[in-house]
Simulated scan of single mutants.
Amino acid sequence: MTSTPGNSRPTTWREIVAADPGHSHRYRERFRELAARGQDIDGEARLIDAMVRRGAHVLDAGCGAGRLGGYLHAAGHSVVGVDVDPVLINAARTDYPGPTWLVGDLAELGLPAAGIDTAFDMIVSAGNVVTFLAPDDRRTVLARFAEHLAPDGRVVVGFGAGRGYAFDEFLADAAAGGLVSEVLLSAWDVRPFTAQSDFLVAVLRRSAP
Score class of each variant (00 low, 15 high):
residue 81 G to W: 00
residue 81 G to P: 01
residue 82 V to D: 05
residue 82 V to M: 10
residue 82 V to C: 09
residue 82 V to K: 04
residue 82 V to E: 06
residue 82 V to W: 07
residue 82 V to F: 02
residue 82 V to L: 15
residue 83 D to R: 10
residue 83 D to A: 13
residue 83 D to G: 13
residue 83 D to W: 13
residue 83 D to M: 12
residue 84 V to G: 13
residue 84 V to Y: 10
residue 84 V to T: 15
residue 84 V to R: 14
residue 85 D to F: 03
residue 85 D to S: 14
residue 85 D to G: 08
residue 86 P to W: 14
residue 87 V to A: 09
residue 87 V to G: 00
residue 87 V to E: 11
residue 88 L to S: 09
residue 88 L to Q: 07
residue 88 L to W: 01
residue 88 L to C: 09
residue 89 I to H: 07
residue 89 I to G: 06
residue 89 I to D: 09
residue 89 I to C: 10
residue 89 I to Y: 06
residue 89 I to W: 08
residue 89 I to L: 12
residue 89 I to F: 13
residue 90 N to K: 15
residue 90 N to M: 13
residue 90 N to S: 13
residue 90 N to A: 15
residue 90 N to G: 15
residue 91 A to R: 05
residue 92 A to H: 07
residue 92 A to G: 09
residue 93 R to E: 10
residue 93 R to W: 10
residue 93 R to P: 06
residue 93 R to T: 12
residue 93 R to I: 10
residue 94 T to P: 08
residue 94 T to M: 12
residue 94 T to C: 08
residue 94 T to L: 14
residue 94 T to F: 14
residue 94 T to K: 15
residue 94 T to A: 14
residue 95 D to R: 12
residue 95 D to N: 11
residue 95 D to W: 11
residue 96 Y to T: 00
residue 96 Y to C: 00
residue 97 P to D: 03
residue 97 P to K: 03
residue 97 P to H: 04
residue 97 P to S: 07
residue 97 P to I: 03
residue 98 G to A: 03
residue 98 G to F: 00
residue 99 P to T: 05
residue 99 P to W: 01
residue 99 P to R: 01
residue 99 P to L: 01
residue 100 T to K: 12
residue 100 T to F: 04
residue 101 W to S: 04
residue 101 W to C: 00
residue 101 W to H: 02
residue 101 W to A: 03
residue 102 L to M: 12
residue 102 L to F: 08
residue 102 L to S: 12
residue 102 L to G: 08
residue 103 V to K: 04
residue 103 V to E: 06
residue 104 G to Y: 09
residue 104 G to P: 10
residue 105 D to H: 05
residue 105 D to T: 09
residue 106 L to N: 06
residue 106 L to W: 07
residue 106 L to M: 07
residue 106 L to R: 05
residue 106 L to T: 06
residue 106 L to S: 02
residue 107 A to C: 10
residue 107 A to P: 06
residue 108 E to N: 09
residue 108 E to Q: 13
residue 108 E to Y: 09
residue 108 E to D: 11
residue 108 E to W: 07
residue 109 L to D: 02
residue 109 L to M: 05
residue 109 L to T: 04
residue 109 L to G: 02
residue 110 G to K: 11
residue 110 G to W: 05
residue 110 G to Y: 09
residue 110 G to H: 12
residue 110 G to R: 12
residue 110 G to M: 08
residue 110 G to D: 13
residue 111 L to W: 08
residue 111 L to V: 01
residue 112 P to M: 04
residue 112 P to A: 04
residue 112 P to N: 03
residue 112 P to I: 03
residue 113 A to G: 14
residue 113 A to D: 15
residue 113 A to Q: 14
residue 113 A to H: 12
residue 114 A to C: 13
residue 114 A to F: 06
residue 114 A to S: 15
residue 114 A to P: 07
residue 115 G to A: 11
residue 115 G to Q: 14
residue 116 I to C: 10
residue 116 I to G: 09
residue 116 I to E: 11
residue 116 I to L: 14
residue 116 I to R: 07
residue 117 D to G: 11
residue 117 D to A: 15
residue 117 D to I: 11
residue 117 D to P: 12
residue 118 T to L: 06
residue 118 T to S: 04
residue 118 T to W: 05
residue 118 T to E: 08
residue 118 T to A: 03
residue 119 A to E: 11
residue 119 A to L: 10
residue 119 A to N: 06
residue 120 F to M: 03
residue 120 F to K: 00
residue 120 F to A: 02
residue 120 F to R: 03
